[in-house]
Design a protein around this nucleic acid. Structure first.
Length: 363
DNA sequence: GACTCGTGGTA
DNA sequence: TTACCAAGAGT
């Protein structure tokens, strides 16, 4: 306890706040249940943490429920078909997470007897588990005193200590503060409390400081303005790329699909034939680049914003009498599109050409 | 440290 | 509308 210097606040007010105001989430054991001896299922904790990486709680909920229903335990997921996992993940984004999720399940099932390792270090050696997720699973599922730091925690800590060093350079110093603050008792609840606080009280804009359990200790509130923290490095501008996508439909109601290469953007996911996505409008965005000769009709443009560029996709449609032979693709009944591993941008492209292709057409 | 890697919600 | 951002990891 000598490490806890005078400027380290107590975690007690936060835990008391969490006992009263915690969010009820499908993957969470509430503090009340935990007090009665209910343990969090490491599989549930891990699955939810991977899904929640850079993803909102609202978006994760239905995916978490579907995955759990389909693959109730880690061994079932390890034995699952890769394409089915990718299809189940379709729409959630960051598809490397799904590829690594499967690899991690296989490693746990075949290398650890179906039991998740219970230390931060061993967890971090698994695919798709980095600093954050290793600490989160260790703390939440195994009650380890691990320092859990995500975007919420960064915001809370940066304000609590009025840290003016920009992110991500400030991360090591912030992590040290989190480690000093994390209690040996209830480390999992502490981590979840910090994240709930960041999500509901210590929000990016207009934080509800009067309701905060750290209101008396917060340096930003005392000396400055909490909304000024955390300081972040300036982000660069998003370039625009252009391309064309080709939706070919036969008289039998089949559409030409193909699979993207296993790595990189939308790796391993399903797509309609497209040109390369280049920085300029050129001949490649026209029907000249179509997969085969047909009466291609322009039917609109899809604008889709990825993390680091904006894509403007010209959509071309052709109704053909019968299938055309292809090298790298296959013909799929339009009626089966819902079961495919189609990322959102591809659903938007198809929905532009075939408005009734999906039950709920977005974009 | 700098990039890559999705998507949908919000102000 | 534009901009930010949400329980980050891998290279």
């Amino acid at each position: 306890m000598t490490l806890k210097t005078l400027d380290t606040p107590s975690a007690k007010p936060l835990l008391d706040w969490y006992d009263r105001h915690h969010r009820d989430l499908p993957w969470r054991v509430s503090p009340g249940m935990a007090a009665r001896g209910v343990k969090a299922d490491p599989y549930h904790v891990w699955l939810s943490e991977v899904m929640l990486q850079q993803t909102t709680v609202q978006a994760v909920k239905p995916y978490f429920a579907r995955f759990l229903q389909r693959w109730p335990d880690v061994t079932g997921l390890a034995d699952a078909d890769n394409d089915e996992v990718m299809a189940a993940w379709a729409g959630l984004g960051y598809y490397a997470r799904a590829r690594n999720l499967k690899k991690c399940a296989e490693a746990v099932a075949r290398g650890h007897g179906g039991v998740f390792p219970d230390t931060e270090e061993r967890l971090k050696s698994l695919p798709g588990i980095g600093d954050y997720t290793a600490a989160a699973v260790a703390a939440i599922a195994f009650n380890r005193q691990a320092a859990v730091m995500d975007g919420n925690v960064e915001r809370v800590i940066s304000r609590l200590y009025a840290i003016s060093t920009p992110l991500p350079a400030a991360k090591p110093a912030m992590k040290q503060k989190v480690a000093l603050l994390t209690p040996a008792d209830r480390p999992g609840d502490f981590a979840q409390a910090m994240m709930d606080l960041g999500a509901t009280i210590c929000t990016p804009k207009r934080p509800a400081c009067p309701l905060c359990p750290f209101r008396d200790a917060c340096q930003a509130l005392k000396l400055s303005d909490p909304e000024l923290f955390p300081v972040k490095a300036a982000k660069k501008e998003k370039p625009v790329r252009y391309g064309a996508a080709f939706i070919a439909v036969t008289g039998d109601g089949e559409i030409l699909l193909r699979q993207r290469v296993a790595s990189g953007l939308l790796g391993g996911m399903t797509e309609v034939p497209t040109t390369a996505w280049t920085a300029r409008i050129d001949g490649e965005t026209s029907a000249e680049a179509a997969p085969f000769d047909a009466a291609w009709q322009a039917c609109g443009t899809v604008i889709h914003v990825f993390t680091h560029f904006e894509l403007r996709l010209s959509i071309w449609r052709a109704a053909i009498a019968a299938k055309v032979g292809t090298n790298d693709g296959w013909w799929e009944p339009v009626i089966n599109l819902e079961a495919q591993a189609l990322p959102t941008v591809m659903k938007k492209a198809i929905a532009t050409a075939i408005p009734l292709a999906f039950k709920t057409s977005k974009g």
